[in-house]
Amino acid sequence: MRLTCPNCGERDIREFTYQGAASMLDRPDPEAGPEAWHAYLHLRDNPAGVTRDLWHHGCGCGAWLVVTRDTVTHAVHAVELVEARDAG
């Protein structure tokens, strides 16, 4: 498997570490309540199809990435920098 890092270009899977669902980016407000935090931390979809997850380019540039890929076809649709999001 290969991912195209926005910084480094296309690289072998060995350089990246899978870090879970991209929904970890949607951190609830501290006051959002236990259900929201439970869902954020523990509840995950397991789709046969398109999924968005986090990868860390630890053996490359160190960027955190959001990878959109297909668990059935193994196609990688997009790789984006986490930092490019509009966050605090």
């Binding site: 570490t17 870090q19 970890m24 980016l25 951190r27 860390h56 630890g58 160190g62 960027a63 955190w64 920098l81 986490v82 930092e83 999001r85 966050a87 605090g88």
Partner: peptide
């Protein structure tokens, strides 16, 4: 790795 995450995801 954790600091990279916190910085890039929430403190950029």
């Amino acid at each position: 790795t954790h600091l990279d995450w916190a910085q890039q995801a929430f403190c950029n």
